[in-house]
């Protein structure tokens, strides 16, 4: 299954946020979307997953989702969006409850995804007892439980401290290496983008348009050893981004 964005336009009131976005999102790879603050990255992600309706243009899904997929387009949120009144296990179970599985079947899926995210021993904990990194791992487990065709990640590491971010980034690389999921990863952090993206899409400042598409051919699990090459990509992106970011920074908020 693949996604194609065709002529997407969106705005809030008089403010135009996205203008003419055309983009193909292939299966089995991670597309990172970067851009200056307020360029409409998160809006674009909400349009892709159907949480908002574009003013013009469309998001087209080609091909069928893989068999056993319960929720083809599945989000991972910046603020984790865990229900504080449910345990780790309960939060995962929440997304399975509407699918009419039997008790044993549900328990099987929950056990499996908790094991894959190394959360099995924390299944009875409430979110307030977990660190930020653990919470995001619960959110990943919850996303995996519905066997998504696409993971739509909205700055998943931004609410975490630098060390945790590093650990979780490694986790995501491991996860992709094992599962080969398709993903859209929105971030303002260029290091994350070049570390995780097979393709990095740079948006211009508002109204957001596609400024540049960068293909990085290095396999994800091999990137740790190629720091200089990644740094070159990063600094090239930064050159492009800096002027946009500066211009966006001095704009009035409701300009």
């Amino acid at each position: 299954m693949e996604l194609r964005l065709a002529g997407l336009h969106h705005g809030y009131g008089n403010i135009e946020v996205l203008r003419g976005i055309d983009l193909d999102i292939p299966a089995g790879r991670i597309v990172c979307i970067v851009g200056p603050s307020g360029c409409g990255k998160s809006t674009l992600l909400r349009l892709i997953g159907g949480l908002e309706r574009p003013e013009r243009g469309e998001v087209v899904q080609t091909g069928a989702p893989p068999p056993g997929c319960l929720n083809p387009l599945t989000y991972i949120f910046q603020d984790f969006a865990l229900l504080p009144w449910r345990t780790v296990e309960g939060n995962v179970r929440l997304v399975l409850e509407d699918h009419g599985f039997g008790r044993a079947e549900t328990a099987g899926i929950v056990d499996d995804v908790l094991a894959r995210t190394r959360l099995s021993e924390f299944r009875a904990a409430f979110p307030r007892q977990l660190s930020g990194g653990m919470k995001q791992r619960v959110a990943v487990a919850r996303a995996l439980a519905v066997s998504p065709a696409f993971l739509l990640m909205d700055e998943p590491l931004s609410a975490l401290d630098a060390q945790t971010r590093e650990l979780l980034l490694d986790d995501l690389v491991d996860l992709w290496t094992r599962e080969r999921f398709s993903g859209v990863y929105v971030t303002h952090n260029l290091r994350e983008a070049v570390r995780l993206g097979h393709r990095v899409v740079l948006l211009s400042r508002r109204p957001g348009t596609v400024r540049e598409i960068l293909e990085i051919d290095l396999p994800l699990d091999a990137r740790a050893g190629h720091a200089p090459e990644l740094e070159a990509h990063r600094s090239r992106l930064w050159q492009l981004l800096r002027d946009e970011a500066h211009a966006a920074d001095v704009e009035l908020v409701d300009g």
């Binding site: 949480l51 319960l70 989000y75 949120f77 229900l83 929440l94 997304v95 509407d98």
Partner: peptide, 29 residues
């Protein structure tokens, strides 16, 4: 009730009734 939680419920395709029962009711308690 945290709108992000409701959006999360919608993004996982939860039914309207499930969102009310499992997200809004406990969130309003």
């Amino acid at each position: 009730v945290d709108r992000n939680l409701i959006r999360m419920g919608q993004s996982f395709g939860l039914s309207w009734l499930s969102i009310v029962r499992k997200i809004i009711l406990p969130g309003a308690l």
